[in-house]
Design a protein around this nucleic acid. Structure first.
Length: 479
RNA sequence: CGGGGCGUAGCGCAGCCUGGUAGCGCGCCUGCCUUGGGCGCAGGAGGUCUGGAGUUCAAAUCUCCACGCCCCGACCA
């Protein structure tokens, strides 16, 4: 990386993203086209994401398990819309142990089928329900156009799969998990999202209904950041997942599935980052505070480092993820820029003057330059940092929300609509017809992202065809 | 899967047109010096020029064939 500066976001958002992911050492390209190596710093962020989600899953009664990577091809073919949706992007294993296999094996693109097969064996009676299992794994979809974190051949995620006795229970579960994703995005990632319902054409292959959370990236494009599907009885019928109800009648189960992937890392990058680099939300940041020691002479060095070590211990004790940058041969100025690029939310500068005064300089990543710097007493530093991190967390959310609001337009007129989706979201009345949706996509490149759960009420005329409609939808260009 | 671009040191590139000693910047290593916003100086290490075949006394350079990657469009988390 010879260039010190990243391309600016305004100039070339895509290149800004590509370079940042590599330079911040979040991920690297793999030898196989479209695959991704997640580097330790990127994985540390993902681990914090998984921890925040996993505890929410457990709190709502879900348990983790592991299902196999390889699936008999016939399984995929059992649910007809499922196979139609996924067959173009399957990786298929045809040989094993040097011999051609009798039945090709598919590398899981998602696990509804193999889990459905197990559920059919495990579920006998209403007493076995609900069955609430999640798994953390990776899946493979043969994507043709890839981008680190956002779309890769193999990606990491969690997939939850549940089985219920009744439709209302499955509906509740689908919505509950959507709420959990929303809560996670807002509280942990400081990413404002719009929970809503997908159109028929954007629905998961094999689902009756798909819900998603949609977020606006820094370039105004939309990113689907998590999905929750009500699978109805489609998979239950394909795999004979049945239970005996209280009255002794054999019934098909109602199933759901829901997932959130490493794509969310891309969302965090694109929602919060600026021209200096990443900005991580404090709650998920692998390093919440970095200490940069500053000294000239050997004497200064020993006193500054001694003080730095003491502060590090104290901050770690206060529960802060802290790093002391003791690299020799790099100037403080270099380190400032380096950690800013890597998105560390708070920097603590410690020089001889600070040691003498018993203070430190705290610099906020979300406020560049002097404005974000403040002298803070070493006494009680832990509490001060905890509070500052909370402020940053909130400021990031507020800024992202303000950005989304500024770039979301409630358009009634199609010409206005076209302008709105050039650089943001359009929130407009929509008749619900697939034909209309397709035309809009063809004419503006914008897709129907979701019909937000939160509706203004009333009715209006479809922004495209003018037909009567009762719901407003979000349209945008999307990743 | 179509269109475009590119494969030369870890990264970014020049050299190719007009064949003849493998270059530059950044990074890396060593030492000195510096350090409050991307320091400086000196020395040093590092290359099957993507692979294969061909033309030639001689190929990074010319020809042919593969392969890979990136970007842009159609499809997807």
């Amino acid at each position: 990386m010879s260039d010190q500066k990243l391309p600016s976001r305004a100039e070339d958002f895509s290149e800004w993203y590509n370079q940042l992911v590599l330079r911040a050492e979040l991920a690297d390209y793999a030898p196989v086209r479209g695959c991704m190596i997640v580097r330790p710093y990127g994985w540390a962020l993902w681990e914090n994401i998984t921890a925040a989600l996993d505890s929410r899953f457990k709190a709502t009664g879900h348990v983790n398990a592991a299902f196999p990577l390889l699936i008999p091809r016939s399984f995929i073919e059992k649910e007809k819309s499922h196979v139609a949706g996924f067959s173009p992007e399957l990786a298929v294993v045809t040989h094993g142990g040097g011999e051609e296999l009798e039945e090709p094996l598919v590398i899981r693109p998602t696990s509804e089928t193999i889990i459905g097969h197990s559920y059919a064996k495990w579920i006998q009676s209403y007493r076995d329900l609900p069955l609430l299992i999640n798994q953390w794994n990776s899946v493979v979809r043969w994507e043709l156009r890839t981008k680190l974190f956002l779309r890769t051949l193999e990606f990491f995620w969690q997939e939850g799969h549940t089985a219920h006795a009744t439709l209302p229970e499955a509906e509740f579960e689908t919505r509950q998990m959507l709420d959990i994703y929303t809560d996670f995005a807002v509280k942990e990632a400081a990413v404002p999202v719009i929970p809503g319902r997908k159109s028929d054409s954007e629905r998961f292959a094999g689902a009756d209904q798909t819900f998603s959370i949609e977020a606006m990236m820094g370039d105004g494009k939309a990113l689907q950041a998590g999905t929750s599907h009500n699978l109805g009885q489609n998979f239950a019928k394909a795999f004979e997942i049945r239970y005996l109800d209280k009255g002794g009648v054999l019934q098909h189960c109602w199933t759901t599935s829901w997932g959130l992937s490493t794509r969310f890392v891309g969302a965090i990058i694109m929602v919060h980052g600026d021209d200096q680099g990443l900005i991580f939300p404090p709650r998920l940041a692998p390093i919440q505070l970095v200490i940069v020691p500053i000294f000239r002479t050997d004497e200064e060095k020993s006193s500054v480092l001694e003080c730095a070590h003491t502060l590090r211990k104290e901050l770690a004790h206060a529960g802060i993820r802290v790093k002391l940058d003791e690299r020799e041969g790099s100037s403080p100025g270099f380190k400032f820029n380096d950690w800013e690029m890597r998105g560390v939310p708070l920097r603590l500068e410690l020089g001889p003057k600070d040691v003498a005064k018993g203070s430190v300089v705290l610099a906020r990543r979300d406020r560049p330059g002097k404005e974000g710097k403040a002298f803070v007493a070493q006494q009680g530093i832990g509490a001060a940092v905890v509070q500052l991190l909370e402020e940053i967390q909130k400021a990031l959310f507020d800024r992202a929300l303000a950005f989304r609001k500024a770039n979301t337009h409630e358009t009634a007129d199609y010409e206005e609509f076209k302008t709105a989706v050039e650089k943001g979201f359009a929130f407009s009345w929509w008749c619900g017809k697939a034909e209309c949706e397709a035309k809009i996509k063809e004419e503006t490149k914008a897709t129907m992202r979701c019909i937000p759960l939160e509706q203004p009420g009333g009715s209006g005329k479809c922004v495209h065809c003018g037909d009567a409609s009762t719901e407003k939808a979000i349209f945008a260009r999307a990743y």
